[in-house]
Design a protein around this nucleic acid. Structure first.
Length: 175
DNA sequence: GCAGTGATCATA
DNA sequence: ATGATCACTGCC
């Protein structure tokens, strides 16, 4: 109680994610991804923002796979890409509006496919709430991130997305 | 620079 | 049932 910097870790709750995806994505830098299999600080994310975003999976409407994106914020959306790699996203904003943050870098793991492989995350996590019961959640451990430490770039791997391919929705914590 | 890999979705 | 697509990675 005497040391200002010794904040207890707090689990990020639904209210944190029930906001526009861009501020949520930016503020996830410096937070921790935690599971029984491993954990680390989030260092790279991307935002996917609603039906107008030509790179967002929600742009084609509700399907079985993308259902979690249309569900309540604070739940996981996990899908397989290129037949090999599970992509981990946290759903944001309001129920019915498809938006999510892709977790691309955590601790020593640089790359969304490496994170899920290291932590043993697969599609069975999709649609579950991000809490201790599901076994995968995020924590604020008091790490302060200055805006000067954040680099913004276009998103990776979405060259098909027309005018949306160049929007700076990727956030990287400077090394 | 590009192959590997298989679920998903549209079309039928 | 079939074919195109794909928010990656590792090796050429």
């Amino acid at each position: 109680m005497h040391t200002a910097g010794s904040a207890r870790a707090t689990t990020l709750q639904s209210a944190f994610f029930a906001r526009q995806v861009l501020p949520v994505a930016q503020e996830l830098l410096g937070k921790y991804l935690v599971s029984p299999c491993g954990e680390g600080m989030i260092t790279e994310v991307e935002a996917y923002d609603g039906p107008e975003d030509k790179a967002c999976h929600g742009r084609f409407g509700f399907t079985e796979r993308t259902a979690p994106m249309f569900g309540p914020p604070g739940h996981w959306y996990v899908y397989l890409v290129y037949g090999m790699y599970w992509m981990l996203n946290i759903v944001t904003d309001t129920e019915g509006y498809p938006s999510a943050v892709l977790i691309r870098g955590v601790g020593e793991w640089h790359g969304p496919g490496k994170i899920t492989k290291a932590l043993g995350i697969d599609g069975s996590m999709s649609g579950k709430n991000a809490d201790e019961q599901s076994g995968l959640w995020m924590e604020d451990r008091g790490v302060r991130v200055l805006s000067s430490q954040i680099r913004r770039t276009p998103r990776v791997g979405i060259g098909y997305a027309g005018e949306w391919k160049d929007v700076p929705y990727r956030f990287v914590l400077a090394q």
